[in-house]
């Protein structure tokens, strides 16, 4: 790994100042992607600004029909939170299925969402539940936030403060994971929200996480696994790699969507 200067500010304002003062600074959340990336010399920031000292970025609150999770809250904290388990059980279950226990003890929701790995789990939850991503300067709907592979609408110096999930009437996430990496080959999050059914798919899209309008309208007519069974997703928009072809992923999306609807009840 190339060397860098390390900073651990105790407030969002100090973190922004440290980034501004750096030639090419990067924020560090849980580090579960950042540190391996640095170890492989795929990035060479001049400065790392560790957000773990900013205490008000950690915590979970449930109020006004929404679950709000601070950006530096770990996956393990979300998975084991009785508040999340009772408000949005599908979200707690999703967090409990990320990576492995050691990754869940360090990795954070803000880091995951900002990284927007095309096979990460949280982006599917954000998109399907219609989450709001709150930063130091604005609030963004998940629909506007995830823009492309590893790309989001965040400015380089923008810090995620929290992610807020409106409580759905029902929801479930089903992941077909790669047995080695535990990343999703296909992950489908379905939710019955105040604005109707929403279906988000991770692990598959050439441009990252995406919604499936055809399935959403089918579920609006009839919330049942049969409604989405065998429903085709255009394989031309999906990834092919050594783990799975685009056609296989297209097939799996239908299967996992059906399972998710069944699991949601």
């Amino acid at each position: 790994m190339y060397d860098f200067a390390y900073h651990k500010p105790s407030s969002v304002a100090d973190a922004m100042a440290a980034l501004k003062a750096a030639d090419d600074g990067k924020f560090l959340a849980g580090g579960m992607t950042m540190i391996p990336t640095l170890k492989q010399r795929l990035a060479q920031p001049s400065d790392l600004i560790d957000l773990s000292g900013v205490g008000d970025l950690v915590g979970i609150t449930v109020s006004g029909g929404a679950v709000t999770i601070g950006a530096m809250t770990t996956h393990a904290a979300v998975a084991t939170s009785t508040d999340v388990q009772s408000a949005i059980p599908a979200l707690a279950a999703l967090a409990g299925g990320i990576g492995d226990p050691q990754v869940r003890n360090r990795g954070t929701i803000g880091g995951s969402v900002a990284n927007n790995d095309p096979a990460a789990d949280y982006p599917a939850a954000c998109l399907a539940l219609g989450a709001t991503i709150k930063t130091d300067r604005r609030e963004m709907a998940a629909d506007d936030f995830f823009t492309d592979l590893f790309e989001t609408a965040l400015a380089d110096d923008e810090i995620i403060l929290s992610v807020s999930f409106p409580k759905p009437s029902k929801a479930a996430y089903q992941k077909f994971d790669n047995p080695a990496s535990r990343y999703a080959l296909v992950g489908v999050f379905v939710a019955q929200t105040a604005g109707g059914p929403r279906v988000a798919v991770t692990g598959s899209g050439q441009n990252g996480v995406f919604r499936v309008p055809g399935m959403e309208s089918a579920l609006a007519s009839s919330w049942s696994a049969d409604a989405v069974k065998g429903m085709a997703v255009d394989a031309g928009t999906l990834n092919s790699d050594i783990h799975a072809s685009a056609e296989y992923r297209a097939h799996l999306i239908g299967v996992m969507a059906g399972r998710a609807v069944t699991a949601a009840g």
């Binding site: 579960m32 393990a76 990754v103």
Partner: peptide, 15 residues
Amino acid sequence: IDGNSAKSCSMLAIQ
């Protein structure tokens, strides 16, 4: 680390 298991190859000493 403070009672929670973590992979020490994936975090900095300074963390």
